[in-house]
Design a protein around this nucleic acid. Structure first.
Lengths: 165, 165
DNA sequence: CAAGATACGTCAGCCTTGTTGACATTCCAA
DNA sequence: TTGGAATGTCAACAAGGCTGACGTATCTTG
């Protein structure tokens, strides 16, 4: 009985099941990025710009180094992207008043407009996937994704949730 | 009553919930690729090599054009990767016997060895995430991911599952 | 059989986005 | 006042996408 039970419960841990999960992640991520990518291409931006815009929108006034720790890229890489966004008038960078070394990043009106377009398109797909799968599935989806993150990123992810739901 | 019910059922569709799902995908995908990336870096390969190896292992004897349709890249891009894998003796390319225009791709022993290393490391994380979240969550995870795919890729994903579970 | 389509390879060049390394500036804090 | 942190920037490089063009077998079809 214990054998049968554990056998049944662990079926989802076979190598085959795991591999299917891996492939599902691969294919789903393509869908996940497909819609914003269309908009970005049209504007000669890339995913890096999207990511920066997303997290600046999420945390207005965030600093460069905070953004770096979330995105996990080098400052040179981020800076190149920020440079174009600032020059194009989508992002505003302001010296900190408390700590004047820091730059606080916010979206301009144009930045907000683009952010809205991008996240609308991405949310549309998410919404239809959520709707198709239902609330229980969505809860499971979130649980597995969270368990898959590196601890450090999970911490950041959760912190981002708490502060402003 | 109908209002309350639909309100409750649709809570998982608020913009905030959707955005959290989007961020979860972003952070989880980083974890998803982190472990194989370590191995690949050490061998001077990239994710593109991993993807090719994965799907060749999954479908031994697959053709170049089939791989192209799964990976969604240009033949030039794939060819660059395949070239190095063939030259390094990880992949074997053989003219088709029925249609001699086709090249059938298989892994060599060395190719299998690397594939094993890569997928072991990726499955380990998957397994621990699955274990932490439990079977119900995993079912939901898979459902949402499938619903998120482009229809064409969902077709390919399902086809890959059916043929050899 | 001739003509067109298909599968594949390859050359050349371009872009985005990541990397390392080096160096300057500004400013906080001990 | 001095070390270190936060930021910006220059330069060079690589992976891995892309387009366009061209060539060569090999099927397929009229």
């Amino acid at each position: 009985m214990a054998d049968v039970q554990s056998g049944e419960n662990l079926l989802f841990l076979t190598d085959e099941q795991l591999r299917q999960g891996i492939e599902a992640m691969f294919f789903a991520y393509r869908g996940f990025t497909a819609d914003p990518d269309l908009i970005l291409t049209e504007l000669a931006y890339g995913r890096a710009h999207h990511r920066a815009i997303h997290f600046i929108a999420r945390r207005p006034g965030t600093t460069v180094s905070n953004l770096l720790s979330i995105l996990g890229v080098t400052k040179q890489s981020l800076n190149r992207v920020l440079r174009t966004l600032i020059d194009d008038g989508l992002v505003k960078s302001e010296k900190g008043t408390i700590d004047k070394r820091e730059r606080h990043l916010t979206l301009t009106d144009a930045g907000h407009a683009l952010e809205q377009r991008l996240s609308d398109s991405q949310r549309a797909r998410m919404r239809s996937a959520y709707r198709a799968a239902g609330p229980t599935a969505v809860a499971g989806f979130r649980q597995v994704l969270e368990a898959m993150m590196d601890p450090e990123l999970r911490r950041k992810y959760r912190a981002m949730r708490e502060t402003d739901t």
